[in-house]
């Protein structure tokens, strides 16, 4: 499967590239689900020494053991496999907090994962220019309900019902790096009850 394609959008909407191994003293790679493929592909063109200074954190997110043997064969200095983002979070935060200037981050997989790691990494002082990203797999969105402030993970349809406050929301492309989420706004605010049929926009 190749890197995801997105429609042109507004400036706040994140854009993703293709991972390309750089020489650096420390490399931190974090991926979820099909994001593993981006790392495996990057490895084909990586300098030999790249994985000697690499720490891979991989979140399976329902992919079971599909990529495990390939990831193990990369020979990373440290490899962690976790089932979900929540399970991996303490390790991610601990790793980010203890990194040094010169670290390069490689993030691959869903927008939710990439966005949340960017949020935490920049809070610890990692520069955006030291972070590469590649989107793979589901384009489902992480959304903040602007009304109740609840976060809804993996939204695929638009409009959708907020799982916290119950309002029906439409999905904007406006994106907050600090919250790592798109914005959801009540769809029938000007005409209560008039809720358009939900369309699957994000797969």
């Amino acid at each position: 499967m190749s890197t995801s394609k997105f429609e042109p959008s507004i400036i706040s909407r994140p854009v993703y590239g293709k991972l390309s191994a750089q020489t650096a003293s420390h490399n931190l790679l974090i991926a979820d689900a099909q994001g593993a493929e981006a790392i495996i592909e990057m490895a084909e063109h990586a300098p030999k020494s790249f994985f000697e200074q690499a720490h891979i954190i991989y979140i399976q997110k329902g992919t079971a053991d599909a990529y495990l043997s390939q990831l193990e064969s990369l020979g990373a200095n440290q490899l962690y496999i976790g089932p979900t983002y929540q399970a991996a979070l303490p390790r991610i935060l601990n790793t980010l907090e203890n990194t040094q200037v010169g670290i390069k981050l490689y993030l691959a997989g869903t927008e939710g994962l990439i966005g949340q790691v960017i949020r935490d990494a920049t809070r610890f002082g990692v520069a955006m220019s030291d972070i590469q990203t590649e989107h793979r797999g589901s384009t489902a969105r992480r959304i903040q309900c602007v009304h109740c402030k609840g976060i809804i993970e993996d939204v695929t349809v638009d409009p959708f019902q907020c799982s916290h406050c119950g309002l029906f929301l439409f999905v904007r492309d406006h994106y907050s790096r600090r919250i790592a989420a798109f914005q959801g706004v009540r769809v029938d605010a000007e005409d209560p009850g008039n809720i358009p049929e939900a369309v699957e926009r994000f797969k």
Binding site: S25, L96, T99, Q100, V101, G102, I103, F124, G125, V126
Partner: peptide, 9 residues
């Protein structure tokens, strides 16, 4: 000096 500075320096 520049090697090993904590991230955010």
């Amino acid at each position: 000096l520049l090697n090993g500075q904590p991230v955010g320096t």
